[in-house]
């Protein structure tokens, strides 16, 4: 029943920006609905009927969500140019400091171990217990950090990210140290790495694919303006096609020339071709910009 209520509330606000305010509001509604349904059930109502009744008496909640969203959007667009700095809370500041110190301590310890034993395996082994938790901690802190552009991620999701990254780090560290230990072959090293890396990568892939945008309203607004500007500039299909052909010709030519000069002289001279091509690309963009303004 818990899951149904949560899903119902989630669906209710599907498509709204996931601000911390909205998340709070959703939690409030969910817990109240839950209390109400349990109460109706205690009075002898079937749980499905109780759910239907509670939901029916909820009324139109989306107008409030609209207000939360809109109010937030207006507030933030207003603050857009004032509040660009990052807001690091006390908890995060402490977290970063602790994780940083632990990592530094680990680095020093591992260097001391390495120099005193002259065996890189011992050095890496000494680093292992420090790198894994601090790496995971940095991921967690970074994701739950509110920035000028993004809202913080919910801590449960961030924790899964952190654990996955921790697992990969653990795999990498342990397999590297094994490599130095007694010259294991690459196949054996991969054998050690895979059980840590593959599931973690799968989890990361899943999380990344299901990621919701956490942009703040002003970022969304900014992107919309940029996109609109872009569409307006290239609204003429003929112009767009010409620009594409010109760019294509430029880069194919540049790559050919790059290869040729590399073969004839050295890669240093060939690099100048790429720089020149970038300059030409910018000039094309400039010309198109001017043309579309007319």
């Amino acid at each position: 029943m818990n899951i149904t209520i949560k899903k119902y509330v989630d669906d209710l606000f599907h498509g709204y920006e996931e601000t911390p305010e909205l998340r709070d509001f959703k939690e409030e509604i969910t817990s109240n609905l839950h209390a109400r349904i349990s109460n109706l059930e205690e009075k002898g109502m079937q749980s499905n009927d109780a759910f239907t009744k509670a939901v029916a008496e909820l009324g139109d909640i989306t107008t409030i969500a609209d207000e939360i969203s809109k109010q937030k959007r207006n507030e933030l667009i207003g603050e857009m140019y004032i509040q660009q700095g990052n807001k690091v809370g006390v908890k995060h500041a402490i977290g970063y400091t602790v994780a940083g110190s632990v990592l530094l301590f680990g680095l020093i310890t591992s260097l001391i171990t390495y120099f005193s034993t002259n065996n890189i395996f011992y050095g890496i082994s000494a680093l292992l217990p420090f790198v894994v938790p601090t790496g995971a901690a940095f991921v967690f802190l970074g994701l739950t950090q509110e920035t000028a552009r993004n809202y913080p991620m919910s801590w449960i999701r961030a924790l899964i990210y952190a654990l996955a990254v921790g697992s990969i780090l653990f795999g990498i560290t342990i397999s590297t140290s094994q490599y130095y230990l007694d010259g294991n072959t690459w196949v054996e090293i991969l054998g050690i790495l895979i059980p840590f890396a593959i599931p973690a990568l799968a989890i990361l892939a899943f999380l990344l694919l299901t990621e919701k945008k956490r942009y703040k309203p002003w970022v969304v607004e900014e992107q919309r303006i940029i996109m609109e500007d872009y569409y307006q500039r290239y609204s003429d299909p003929e112009l767009t096609a010409k620009r594409g052909l010109l760019s294509g010709a430029l880069w194919v030519g540049a790559l050919g020339l790059f290869g040729l000069i590399w073969l004839l002289t050295s890669v240093i001279y060939a690099l100048f071709v790429i720089i020149l091509a970038v300059v030409c690309e910018m000039l094309i963009e400039y010309k198109m910009h001017k043309k579309s303004k007319v």
Partner: peptide
Amino acid sequence: GYEIYNTILEKTGGLYQLKEA
């Protein structure tokens, strides 16, 4: 929320059924 809702319902003898929204 739910307690407030319930209090209103009880005080009015169930006559005033307002929406939670």
